[in-house]
Amino acid sequence: MTGENYQSTREAVDAGRTAARARDRLLLYVRGMDVPPLLSLELALEGLRRASAGAEPLTITGAMRELHSLLREKGLHTSWVEKYGPPPSSMPPFNRSSMVAEGLELSLTRRLGHWLAKLLTRRARP
């Protein structure tokens, strides 16, 4: 094998490995989404097809970029939970009220004072 052949073969192998990694990464991403299995496979396939369509060899960054743009097109980029699962309304609508602390008169001496005052005023009445 000549040097040039070796070099080109090696590049082809490297490109193949990179493409395989990109494919795996993309598949992993769609598996991590909360969408039906068939749709996730369709998304992965379409993403890979678009990423491979260009002149440049398939890379992880390229594949992920294409997948994200595909998700944006389909309106799945942030809201697949809402779209394919029940809405995550984790809280009901507010029905506000206030909760104010009532005063606590803690001091015994002050309380005794109040009690004495009450007693005296009661006595003072005719």
């Binding site: 991403y29 991590g32 989404m33 909360d34 942030t78 809201s79 697949w80 939970v81 809402e82 995550p88 984790s90």
Partner: peptide, 13 residues
């Protein structure tokens, strides 16, 4: 941060 499903859930909540 990583798993798309968890990311989307956390982002929406």
């Amino acid at each position: 941060v990583t798993i798309p499903r968890v990311f989307a859930l956390h982002a929406s909540l």
